[in-house]
């Protein structure tokens, strides 16, 4: 009899470290100041956005440069639900998810006809259409945008500090939920198919995997998560406009940068990438536009020197996996050779 294990020594260490990190981060309101909480919450949203984009592009091979469509959609849904329907902001974030998934279905029907570069451009066009539509909604400020009414923000929690804690924990919980869902997905049967598609689409098809169906599932799921994170981002910003909500720079270019330098097609990649991105941003932001030049140079160097990203480099050299995704065949000693165990 042979057994199959998911965990390796590195993944046991990885899971333990992630567990400790989660506890430390959950306690951040007690050890960090306001700036720290705000920064961490922003880091979380980028980890989530990049992880979702990684699932889409890194695993399913759907290189979208239009995920800002769903970030903006989520943001606008939050404002619409809170301002027009008086829904509690947290409830509005939860509603943004299913609506994001719902919107992803007809969008997919349209753009799945396109392949490769045409698909990428198609997603961007869709996002621009969304931006133009948003600027037509005059009750939400039209082209110039709108702020979340102070009364509704204040009503969220008894004090300003409580509200800030609430939003921080919400960001942490949502990001953990996004990552947890992705890990669960990758460990499932669909994950097996998805990893196969990542590695070789032709072989995946020829081995009985319905590639289009899996891609559609991933696209819709990503729409769900991205819209929720989008709503969260604009709850933190308290102001929305078509240009900020559907910004290709903020919600796609930076996200691609993060995923590519961290390691595309690996679940750990976006986390590593986000850390690198924020370290660079915090240390280089004073340099003005030079900071973007340096970031571009870093991206080029990483792509040339480590095309599988920083985590890809480490994982291949040491055979590490931070999360137990692999299925390893463990050979039990054969029955006729009892006691032969190393």
């Amino acid at each position: 009899m042979s057994r199959v294990e998911h965990a390796t020594r590195s993944s046991r260490i990885g899971v333990a470290l992630i567990g400790v990190a989660l506890i430390v981060l959950a306690l951040a309101p007690f050890w960090g100041d306001r700036q720290m909480l705000r920064l961490l919450a922003e880091v979380f949203t980028f980890v989530a956005l990049a992880s979702l984009w990684n699932l889409l592009a890194g695993y399913a091979g759907l290189v979208s440069v239009g995920q800002q469509a769903f970030v903006g959609l989520g943001g606008y849904l939050l404002f619409a639900l809170v301002i027009l329907a008086g829904v509690h902001p947290i409830v509005a974030i939860l509603i943004a998810g299913p609506i994001g998934a719902l919107v992803a279905v007809p969008v997919a029907a349209l753009i799945f006809r396109l392949r490769g570069a045409y698909f990428a451009i198609g997603t961007w066009v869709v996002a621009e259409v969304f931006r133009l539509l948003a600027s037509q909604i005059s009750v939400l400020g039209g082209g110039s945008g709108i702020s979340l009414p102070a009364a509704m923000v204040v009503a969220m929690a008894p004090s300003r500090q409580a509200r800030e804690f609430e939003i921080y924990w919400l960001a942490l919980a949502l990001t953990a939920a996004v990552l947890g869902t992705i890990v669960a997905l990758l460990r499932s049967r669909h994950g097996l198919a998805l990893t196969a598609i990542r590695d070789n689409e032709l072989a995946a098809q020829s081995n009985g995997i319905d590639v289009t169906r899996i891609k559609l599932i991933v696209y819709v799921l990503t729409g769900f998560g991205t819209a929720m994170i989008g709503a969260l981002i604009f709850l933190m910003k308290l102001r929305i406009s078509p240009d900020t909500a559907f910004s290709v720079n903020d919600w796609t270019a930076f996200v691609i940068f993060i995923t590519v330098i961290g390691g595309i097609g690996r679940i750990e990649g976006p986390i590593v990438g986000t850390i690198v991105f924020f370290i660079m941003r915090q240390t280089l932001a004073d340099l003005g536009s030079l900071y973007l030049l340096i970031m571009g140079a870093v991206a080029i160097v990483v792509m040339l020197w480590a095309p599988k990203g920083l985590w890809g480099l480490i994982a291949e050299r040491f055979g590490w996996q931070a999360l137990p995704l692999q299925r390893r065949l463990v050979l039990a000693p054969k029955t006729e050779e009892p006691g032969e165990r190393s």
């Binding site: 097996l192 990893t195 590695d199 070789n200 020829s206 081995n207 009985g208 692999q326 390893r328 065949l329």
Partner: peptide
């Protein structure tokens, strides 16, 4: 040959066995 290069040899075979049948 078109292996799923990032997956293990065992996983390659598991994919085929699980999805084809």
């Amino acid at each position: 040959p078109q292996p799923f290069s990032g997956m293990t040899v065992f996983e390659n075979v598991v994919v085929a066995a699980a999805f084809a049948t």
